[in-house]
């Protein structure tokens, strides 16, 4: 039976925020979010900071437990089948977290070993990916702390792909990158999807990036999925000329007003 690559149904997640010594309040990071991503599709989630994008990615990555709802990745239910799910997902987060003293080679080999792969094969694959991302071979042995953020993010992508996952979870992978690095990453992701049929869930602030890469887009605001469809359909639905305008009309807020939702949500980890 054919099933969606990602199936999210009525997903809920809240965090408790302490207010004073005894009082705690509950803040919703995700409220009844439902969507599906087909196999081989690139699906974009657009939303400002604090809208729940990262919480969603972290739930799908088995790093956060949902309060309610259902999540299935390639037919496997979370959190029940998280061991299987961990073998089929690769994740790239906005901050390239590595052992910064170690080289790209050492970091990638460590990941390959963690996934039980043969080091030789993993190294060859990692080299290919880094070359496709426009990275020089000579940089392979350089400690990551000596590399630019753009290079680190490319290695982060290589780390996610070195295990050859059918499902890629990308949490703002191009945020903070220079225009060239951003183009390199976007071109690579396009080519990857066409070549291997990898399913990609991408969260981003960048409307142009979403339009370029994503077959369908979901607008997330205050933990709710307020609209979804193709970029054209969303523009038509909002009677807007651009995706930016469509987002403002459909969600009532702009992506650039990053601070507003943060203030509303309070200082919360993992939102």
């Amino acid at each position: 039976m054919e099933f969606p690559a990602i199936q999210v149904c009525n997903l809920k997640k809240s965090f408790r925020k302490r207010e004073g010594f005894f009082k705690k309040s509950r803040l919703w990071a995700l409220e009844d979010v439902s969507f599906e991503v087909h196999k081989g599709e690139t699906y974009g989630l657009l939303g400002p900071n604090g809208s729940g994008k990262s919480s969603l990615i972290r739930i799908l990555s088995t790093l956060l437990t949902a309060d309610g709802g259902e999540v299935r990745l390639m037919g496997h239910s979370l959190p029940k089948e998280q061991e299987v799910v961990r073998r089929i997902i690769g994740r790239v987060s906005v901050d390239a977290a590595f052992y910064k003293k170690l080289s790209a080679r050492e970091n990638l080999l460590y990941t390959a070993l963690l996934y039980g792969q043969k080091p030789g094969e993993a190294e060859r694959r990692a080299m290919e990916i880094l070359e496709q991302l426009g990275m020089e071979k000579t940089k392979f042995s350089t400690p990551l702390e000596e590399m630019s953020r753009g290079m680190q993010q490319k290695i982060s992508i290589a780390r996610a792909l070195v295990i050859d996952p059918p499902l890629l979870l990308l949490d703002e992978p191009t945020t903070g990158l220079d225009p060239k690095s951003r183009r390199d990453v976007q071109s690579f992701l396009e080519a990857l999807r066409q070549r291997t049929g990898t399913t990609i869930l991408l969260t981003t602030h960048d409307m142009a990036e979403a339009e370029r890469l994503c077959a369908r887009i979901g607008f997330l605001a205050h933990g709710k999925l307020v609209a979804e469809g193709t970029a054209e359909a969303l523009k038509q639905q909002a009677a807007a000329a651009t995706l930016d305008d469509a987002f403002i009309k459909l969600t009532g807020e702009g992506l650039s007003k990053d601070e507003e939702p943060q203030k509303e949500m309070g200082v919360l980890e993992g939102v």
């Binding site: 990555s61 790093l63 073998r87 987060s93 977290a97 990941t111």
Partner: peptide, 13 residues
């Protein structure tokens, strides 16, 4: 501190 704990916890180990 390095932020890699999430990646270790995400791995099928």
């Amino acid at each position: 501190w390095e932020g890699t704990l999430e990646y270790t916890f995400m791995a099928p180990v």
